[in-house]
């Protein structure tokens, strides 16, 4: 998990609305429990090249309701090692929690004008996404203070350890 005052830069992988957890990581891989193993099958059914071509720091960009479906934490885990942040117009509830809890940054933002391959810069502190390819800037939804606390602690486990 990056620090909130750090800038993130990466290429966009653009997806549509309602990307479900079966699309992120198919059910047959749920016996795998490590992020390295899971990452090899990320988006396998919907973008077969993803796992091979993704570069560390890349950004997943999607429309509405990203991560709908199952409660499998395998989904954020499959993305966490390479993907620096997921930006979507909206997230499904359990995925949003799981991502925050496990240290995959997620940001709500209008993504209509972002295309596959665009170079993006994300400023969590100011809640701003800058599209360096099109020179546009988009305002994202700032994190509520409670969620900020979890992110700043480096995920829920650390947060709980600090507060126990």
């Amino acid at each position: 998990m990056p620090r909130l005052n750090e800038l993130i830069k990466g290429r966009a992988w653009k997806f549509n609305d309602d990307v479900d957890t079966d699309a992120i990581i198919p059910g047959k891989y749920l016996v795998l429990n490590s992020s390295e193993e899971l990452a090899k099958h990320a988006f396998e059914n919907v973008r077969p090249n993803f796992a091979r071509q993704v570069a560390v720091g890349d950004i997943v960009v999607a429309g509405e309701n990203f991560g709908c479906g199952s409660s499998r934490e395998h989904a954020p885990l499959a993305l966490r090692d390479a993907i620096s942040v997921v930006i979507a117009r909206s997230f499904a509830r359990i995925f949003f929690r799981n991502a925050i809890n496990t240290g995959l940054p997620v940001l709500e933002c209008e993504t209509m004008n972002i295309s596959d391959g665009d170079l993006l810069q994300v400023d969590f502190e100011k809640a701003i996404v800058r599209n360096e390819t099109t020179q546009e800037t988009y305002a994202a939804t700032p994190f509520p203070p409670f969620i900020r606390g979890i992110i700043e602690a480096g995920g829920l486990v650390n947060y709980v350890k600090q507060h126990m």
Binding site: S71, E73, I94, R97, N101
Partner: peptide, 18 residues
């Protein structure tokens, strides 16, 4: 309500959840 494994781990450890 359904939760992920980290939430569940925290609930198992503390009996509480956010």
């Amino acid at each position: 309500t359904g939760v992920g494994s980290t939430d569940m781990g925290v609930a198992l450890a503390t009996g509480m959840l956010w």
